[in-house]
Design a binder for these strands. Structure first.
Lengths: 213, 213
DNA sequence: GTCTATAAACAGATAGAC
DNA sequence: GTCTATCTGTTTATAGAC
């Protein structure tokens, strides 16, 4: 993970505007004029700072990796030794991810941008996969192995970890659907907490069965 | 659910082209000229048949609802009475969804289009939500209630059902990530089957715990 | 570094021939 | 119903003043 320093000044404001507008409307549907206006500058500054619209997109991807890496690093600081510690750390990751990804207006632009990029499968995903997704998934697999005694890199373990993470992410992807069906205005801290309770209970149910085998 | 008859001729080819290109590149990034070329016709025919680009988008949404409704209707034909029948029907739905949504090249354009629309939250989602998503979710909640003795429309039930469905859908949303991490070329029938095995096992684990309470 | 003005390409919609 | 040609507006990128 290369430690890129946070941007400053006009460049930072352009990235913030790009994250917001790319996330809400999509990359192609967002014009450079809108971005410049949102950032309080002019169109030419995008080419000056990032070489063009595509350069700004890549810079937005780097910013996402920077911020998400910080959040997940906080939730799982050190590799645990005991079974119980591993389980507690998985719970903490699920709760942190749910709060960050499903709720929390603050991270909304970030996650919307990243979801679109994940669907696209372009160069931004490539960068984020290598620096963030792959190491995080491996770490979660290691926790699962510590908690269950199963092998960390077996196919079953990797798929189960995806299924656990997938539960969380769906509440972001399908958020317009979830809020409608639940009769919620939004997924705020309270709702995110109740979702996380369900997902943690699911984790324990699945663990209970897997620890037998 | 209004039973719209399948389109024919040029209109059908335009919808197929729209589904494919909107799904792969996004609505805004796809030009009407590309669509016409893919469909083997001219730009003006889009306005003639659907009133414009937006009309074609809505027609694509209706086509998605038609096809997905057929698949899910096959997996859960009649409301079951017994606990075991309800569990078997939930298994069948999970397996059918996994095969259809995560694997199967045939439905690729369909699901890609719908995922983009779900993120957008526009009028296409509104239509599909009312005719398809809401009734299907209620039906799955009823199955859960029959299987566990819990209340079908309680908050916990609705959230658990979302978590079960979310597991499936993540393997589509995050497919570029999953295939990379698993070292797969694609998610074909074999891989989809192994994923479904994990998800059905998860279902049983969660059921085991919920039936106690 | 910031900005205005402009260029060159492309968008969606439509008029009108067939 | 299908197609070509065209209209009108918007796009990104860039040249050049400050």
């Amino acid at each position: 993970m290369p430690d890129t320093p946070p941007l400053e000044g006009t460049a930072a404001q352009l990235v913030a505007a790009g994250l917001k507008l790319f996330g809400r409307k999509g990359f192609a549907a967002t014009s450079t004029r809108e971005i410049a206006a949102e950032a309080g500058t002019n169109v030419a500054s995008i080419a000056y700072h990032f070489g063009g619209k595509d350069g700004l997109r890549r810079a937005c991807g780097a910013e996402v990796a920077r911020q998400i890496g910080r959040v997940l690093g906080d939730a799982a600081p050190t590799p645990p030794q005991s079974t119980d510690a591993a389980i507690r750390q998985m719970e903490a990751i699920l709760r942190a991810m749910t709060a960050f990804v499903a709720g929390s207006r603050a991270s909304d632009d970030l996650t919307a941008f990243m979801l679109r990029e994940a669907g696209e499968g372009g160069p931004v995903l490539d960068a984020v996969y290598g620096t963030l997704i792959d190491p995080m998934h491996r770490r979660f697999c290691a926790l699962w192995a510590t908690a269950t005694g199963q092998e960390a890199e077996s196919e079953a373990t990797r798929l189960i970890v995806f299924s656990l993470i997938g539960q969380v992410l769906y509440f972001r992807v399908g958020r317009p659907i979830v809020t409608r069906r639940m009769g919620w205005d939004a997924i705020d801290a309270a709702e995110a907490g109740r979702i996380a309770d369900i997902l943690v209970a699911n984790l324990h149910s699945i663990l209970a069965r897997e620890r037998l085998s």
